[in-house]
Design a protein around this nucleic acid. Structure first.
Length: 296
DNA sequence: CCTTGAACCTGGGCGC
DNA sequence: TGCGCCCAGGTTCAAG
């Protein structure tokens, strides 16, 4: 469940259980996910206190009291869940049926916190996710972090930044917005949704939104606002829950009910007075959903 | 430089 | 019921 809003939702869900807690034991149940685990992975974390839970783009960053940082990426199917049944006040509502998935519980963090013990479990059927270790000082220079573009939250994302990167680009807007070196954290769903909001065709060349002297045109400013608002709304809704993925606290995000394009092929466009039909095309090997009638 | 396609994995849905 | 095919929220690497 992994675009930026989902990872941010995971971060918020894990924070109460993890921040300030001591990792007493780590069960690493296989040698690799997408990449091999770091050498002595469990040993390097056991006994450490979690100081901070952060996020950069789609990366979850778990900081420890010795300066170590665990970089966790959820790939396509990674998820975390918290089992706090050792605590006094157990919500108890997260005990949904996980039986068929348990064989994909690859890592279990056993935590001791101020309010009792908890297990944080990482589950990932397709194993496109991974965990790596670095340290706070080296984090910004880490190859996975170094080249990331701006966060689509906050002020870093603005039309001038996009104009710089879009100028002269023939690549379609869909591809340009998915490029993590320009904006970090957008994925297939939210790119489709932002383009619908901005009434822009995913097939339009990115460079067509930049003037000859490199300035953003009005519609690029509008696109910037749409990207920011779609991401903000999705975070607010707790992300999207597809294919029954759960959030860290066992609940479901509900932004999928707000989709205007994603997975709505042949359904009517929801724009007032448009009357068009959502179409599915394939761009760079991935589905794009859009309304050819109102997105130009 | 750029764009495209395949690869990495498992599981769910659909047509036959 | 079963099999084969297509599809899935991501990223990387090779080839043209």
């Amino acid at each position: 469940m992994p675009e930026l809003p989902e990872v941010e939702t995971v971060r918020r869900g894990l924070q109460p259980a993890m921040e300030g807690a001591v990792v007493e034991r780590v069960e690493q149940r296989r040698a690799d996910l997408r990449f091999p685990f770091p050498d002595n992975f469990a040993a390097r974390i056991e006994g450490r206190r979690v100081t901070r839970l952060k996020r950069r783009a789609k990366y979850l960053l778990i900081g420890f009291d010795d300066g170590a940082v665990l970089i966790s990426h959820l790939g396509m199917s990674g998820s975390y869940y918290v089992d706090s049944s050792g605590t006094v006040n157990t919500p108890g509502d997260f005990h949904h049926d996980r039986s068929k998935n348990e064989r994909h519980d690859h890592v279990v963090f056993h935590l001791a916190g101020s309010s009792g013990s908890a297990r944080v479990v990482y589950n990932d059927p397709r194993r496109f996710g991974f965990m790596l270790l670095t340290d706070t000082d080296g984090l910004d220079a880490h190859p996975l972090i170094r080249d990331l573009g701006v966060e689509p939250t906050g002020n870093a994302l603005n039309a001038a930044h996009l104009a710089n990167h879009f100028a002269g680009k023939k690549a379609p807007l869909k591809a340009a917005l998915l490029d993590q070196k320009i904006i970090a954290g957008l994925g297939n769903i939210y790119v489709c949704e932002a383009l619908w909001q901005a009434r822009l065709s995913p097939r339009r060349a990115a460079g067509s939104l930049v003037t000859a002297d490199g300035a953003p045109v009005k519609r690029l400013e509008e696109l910037t606002r749409c990207v920011r608002s779609v991401i903000a709304a999705a975070i607010e809704a707790g992300g999207s829950s597809l294919r029954d993925h759960r959030l860290a606290d066992g609940t479901l995000g509900y932004f999928q009910h707000s989709f205007n394009t994603y997975d709505r092929e042949a359904e009517p466009c929801r724009r007032e007075g448009c009357g068009g039909k959502i179409r599915r095309i394939v761009q760079t090997g991935r589905s794009t959903f859009y309304c050819p009638a109102c997105q130009r």
